[in-house]
Design a protein around this nucleic acid. Structure first.
Lengths: 267, 267
DNA sequence: ACTTGACTTTCCCCCTACCGGAAGGCGTAT
DNA sequence: ATACGCCTTCCGGTAGGGGGAAAGTCAAGT
């Protein structure tokens, strides 16, 4: 039996940590002097502390370790846990490798004097004059997860009304900010005919960006558009919209093509 | 300008986080209503928040990010920082790969029904009768980092006294527990002659383990010895000692061979 | 004008796995 | 006796927020 300091030295675990393990009930000293509360450990506890260190290395939380120690014979559950840890370690390696490759690109760029956020500058803003379009649209607050439902409903409306679609579907955003769960959105499809059900989306001067890639790059696109509008002395005149040139249901995210239109005028 | 909730949605950063960034001065809202303290953000701040998210992904602390943001033009310092991060990510990948390979071995073992700590059972304990040895030794409290110094001093003593070394150097441990910085240790070398300077290390029944590998595996060896002694009904009779069959200065850690002797008797 | 529901504020505690240090008691070698 | 080292508990802190309460605010619908 030895004092906490001695046990700390042979186990390579600090006294602070041993006291903490005592406190949370993970590893109680084998004997505690009632007079002075000195903790005393036994060499046999070395095995436990080695197990704790090993499981910690494997990414177990102390809570999980406690569970393992308290049920020492349940190899099945332990095996499951360890396989989970392997999976999570594997994920982390993948993640870090991805980060590493991006860091390497970043370093290459920086060495050429290209700043971190300069990829925004490479998002190409075009100033174009759009033509008026006839559109059939439904406007409501939706959860964007249900976008597919609404667009299918819209296409079935088009069929019923015997209209002819002449362009890719689009969304017109009537809220200032993006709220994926409750969003005032106008889902529209350009059609050839001009009936009582359709409306005209007026032609306009627009700052436009073509995004090739997943939708989660859209914040970058909007950051860039905002920057461009300010830098070039424009202001936003009406709700912006996106046109989806590819069907996200049929296209891998990396191949998606989206056009973002921001109606503007000179300040 | 938009509320914190709106900005949170377009930037994919929770309101909690945005408030925290405000609190630590990392990203202050562009305007705060004096009456109700509502925070308002501008689209132009999207760029900053994208930068923050990017640097966070790269492993920067918020403090480092704040430094980067406050000195936006110092590319040299940024490059250094990023290279550091790359290095640290690289280290982490190495580390995780090591853990992963050990986890895989562990899983293989568990599937064969071999328990996590069973490697201890494979540490082979032998019960042997040692022969008495003449040794020349110095006993004192030392820092084990200076072990080399003391062993050289001992060898020079041997030379001066015209003695003949007949075995590998050894340490006899008079403290119960290992304290690397202040350790009551007897450094000894077996010698042929028996003079007034030498003493006899008596022959004894010993539990002995041969360790092949780095010294940091010694805790496992002692755990195993302790276990063995208890399981087989022995008790420890006198200070234990180690014999260093290889010179750690000349041998890579993985190749080191150490014998650990624990003098025992039947209980 | 009133209600309702969504949004915002501050405030406080919680998380992990400990580390640092202070104040005070205990042990032992000189 | 005294000094030094070890032990105890207690308090506070870490990084990056999360959870939730209590209270104020806003906009829309009735």
């Amino acid at each position: 039996m030895m004092s906490i300091g001695a046990f700390s030295k042979i186990s390579n675990v600090t006294t602070k940590t041993l006291r903490y393990y005592d406190e949370i009930g993970l590893l109680k000293p084998v004997y505690v002097n009632i007079n002075n509360n000195y903790r005393y450990y036994d060499v046999s506890q070395l095995k436990t502390v080695l197990l704790i260190s090993k499981l910690k290395l494997y990414g177990f939380s102390l809570e999980e370790i406690a569970a393992v120690i308290q049920t020492p014979c349940d190899n099945g559950a332990l095996l499951m846990l360890i396989k989970q840890k392997r999976q999570s370690i594997f994920q982390q390696i993948k993640h870090f490798e991805h980060v590493l490759s991006r860091l390497n690109e970043e370093i290459k760029n920086l060495e050429r004097g290209i700043h971190l956020m300069s990829y925004l500058d490479e998002i190409n803003v075009q100033l174009i004059e759009t033509q008026p379009k006839n559109i059939l649209s439904i406007r409501k607050r939706i959860n964007v997860a249900d976008y597919g439902l609404h667009i299918r409903a819209l296409f079935s409306d088009i069929e019923k009304a015997n209209l002819t679609p002449v362009g890719a579907p689009m969304s017109i955003f009537h809220d200032e900010a993006y709220d994926p769960e409750n969003y005032d959105i106008e889902i529209a499809v350009p059609v050839k005919e001009n009936t009582g059900q359709t409306r005209t989306l007026s032609g306009n001067l627009c700052a436009m960006v073509t995004l090739k890639g997943p939708y989660n790059n859209l914040p970058s696109v909007y950051a860039r558009l905002q920057e461009w509008v300010e830098a070039n002395g424009y202001q936003i005149t009406s709700p912006f919209y996106e046109i989806y040139l590819t069907d996200p249901g049929q296209t891998p995210p990396e191949e998606n093509i989206t056009e973002v239109y921001l109606p503007v005028a000179k300040r």
